[in-house]
Design a binder for these strands. Structure first.
Lengths: 213, 213, 213, 213
DNA sequence: TATGAATGAGTTTTCATTCAT
DNA sequence: TATGAATGAAAACTCATTCAT
């Protein structure tokens, strides 16, 4: 049984190495411009070995996203659940997501193309799995907002809308950071995002703006 | 010159028809699964004619996005500039963008894959043009916030961050609406988004949450 | 309409050329060792052009066999129907089939692998079409024997069995001739086969054999 | 030496098991669609073990045919040599061959693709071995006919042609039986074939057929 | 000028064979 | 000795692009 276990572990390690190589290749060249050969070369395996683990290039791609999303999900939950107050949970969520993508910049490129309507109206079975995970994440975040509403710290707005809004903001900040590829750390934005989502941009009682003259 | 002008007009109309056909095809099957032949068939032209107007499939794709973004830009500016107060400008912006994509749902699929890092780190000359336009749009929205800050109706936060946050929210709402493809209109979200960005989710002085017992 | 007709004719000629090239290649290297590229090279067309005419290599292969069988069928019928007496029809059939394969030696290799159980128990849709044609041919030959029985010139044996027997003989002679690839013409065997099928090998009343001493 | 002998016996048994598994697989899926892995699985050995016995898949295939042909040859000889009169020898041959393939239907699929020009003009070294055996078989059958001619029971026709004709008939009947896969036994055809080859289809003196008017 | 037939480079995937354990 | 994981060569097929008509 020890022998079997070793084989199994070996197999998993190989699979992991392929996924890592695939991430490097996909994030650099994109899905379509990456060939299975590229990935095999990067992983230092034969192409056949890739196909031992994944039935097709597409499967490999979606397995990669799935894996990483689960990984991210775990990390977020941990961070969030270390907090008690809803606002702190939200702050933790923001922090964790920025932190995760700061370290996994490469993955974001893949992640975003995974959740965007990558291949048009017609969704593949594989794509659906990703959307499902995205939905689940949305519900999880809604849950935090819901709790916050019940505990009286958040406004009585549809918590799903809050979640959609917050996640959009987060993606937008990450996207912008990647595109501008600046030297500042992504995580310096935690407080800004926190403030935006919690307090909004408006100044009380001054929304009409001063008169111009 | 009149003759030339007619020819020119004819040419432009043809180009426009191709772009419209391309949008229908791309939005249904995605960029890679759409063939130039598909587009030619949809446009009722020969493939050769497509190539008279666009040097490559990729060029056609990005021209389409460019065109449509410019179109959207125009529409947004008009809506925004009809308002005077910064908050009203923001509300108009939200309304216009939702309205635009409600009518151009198909285009959003293409738009989002255009601005997301669709093809990896390596940005093509064509992709850069899209990003440039996105940057310009960001700056335009920042401008509204900046004016709002100066006029005292918005908090003193980096207006670029406000813009990044707002646009992320908008995309997220549109994306969610498309994915769930529900019967509600996208535009019913205007007030929610307005409230989220202006006031945030928090209730003053209650952020810590009520104690649980 | 003349223009269309010319186009159509051109297309058919091309198709024909591809089929001829395919025959040369298949007969030399066999189905599996022939690549579509080989055929394209032989036909002096691009591979794409091959695929314009035939959806797959397999389809090309079976189209080729089908075509040729039809061709052979026509030739046989003509020869047979020029005769009146059943025995003369049989002789004509033998003569025609040998003549045909003498001239189309290459095709026989393909033909025989087509009707033999090329790919095991599991028959493809395409393979079935060939078997159907073989059945039809069998029935046609049976018809000649049936007529002969009715007209009293043949024994009262199941005509289908006669047909199966005769066609087996023919294939066997052709096969043998191809394998030994001798300098004699295949058609010199007409009389022998005729005698074998009509009179058999036995000498009347002497079947027990003379005693040996 | 006893130990070596046991080893040797063990080795042969293994080889035999592989050949049997191969036959099952090849007859079901055909040569090309059968993978070495399929055979290894069916034989319950590792692929490596297959290659210990046969240098290549092709070798395995032809060894299988060779083996079985030898097997068939033995069986036929036994049946034939139990008879004295040439006609009885022929009847025995027919009976034995039908009986053999009735029991080894699977093998016939392989056998026929082996002797037909399966892989085109270019004959492999391995294929040649099969043809050689076929030739030998032909000569053996010729020998029976020759003897019959000498003993006066058969017509003075080239005995090789008789053999080619008879074997063709046999294959044709077997082939037809497999294709129609009917419930009747193959061996019910013995007498028909015997009659066809010995007496032919014609009725003495009536060959011209009745006049039609 | 508009066309669409022809092209062939490039991609995914399979599977016979090897060889370290 | 038996194994089966790893390999990578090879082949079917697609489709952006060209160019003769």
């Amino acid at each position: 049984m020890q022998a079997l276990s070793r084989k199994e572990r070996e197999r998993l390690r190989q699979r992991q190495e392929i996924l890592e190589a695939a991430q490097r290749v996909f994030s650099t060249k994109g899905f379509h411009k990456s060939t299975v050969n590229d990935i095999a070369l990067e992983a230092e395996f034969g192409v056949g070995t890739i196909y031992k683990h994944f039935p097709s290039k597409e499967d490999l791609y979606f397995s990669l996203i799935e894996n990483k999303i689960d990984d991210l999900g775990l990390f977020l939950r941990e961070s969030v659940e270390a907090q008690n107050a809803p606002v702190e949970k939200i702050r933790a969520l923001i922090g964790a997501q920025l932190q995760y993508f700061e370290k996994n910049e490469d993955f974001f490129r893949i992640y975003i193309s995974g959740i965007s309507e990558l291949e048009g109206k017609i969704k593949s079975r594989l794509h659906s799995k990703i959307l499902e995970r995205y939905q689940r994440y949305l519900i999880y975040v809604s849950g935090i907002f819901k709790e916050g509403i019940e505990r009286g710290c958040f406004k009585k707005i549809d918590p799903l809308k809050m979640a959609v809004g917050l996640l959009g903001m987060l993606n937008s900040f990450i996207s912008y950071w990647i595109q501008t590829d600046n030297s500042e750390k992504l995580t310096i934005n935690v407080e800004s995002i926190y403030q935006l989502i919690i307090e909004g941009v408006g100044r009380e009682g001054r929304l009409a703006g001063s008169s111009r003259e």
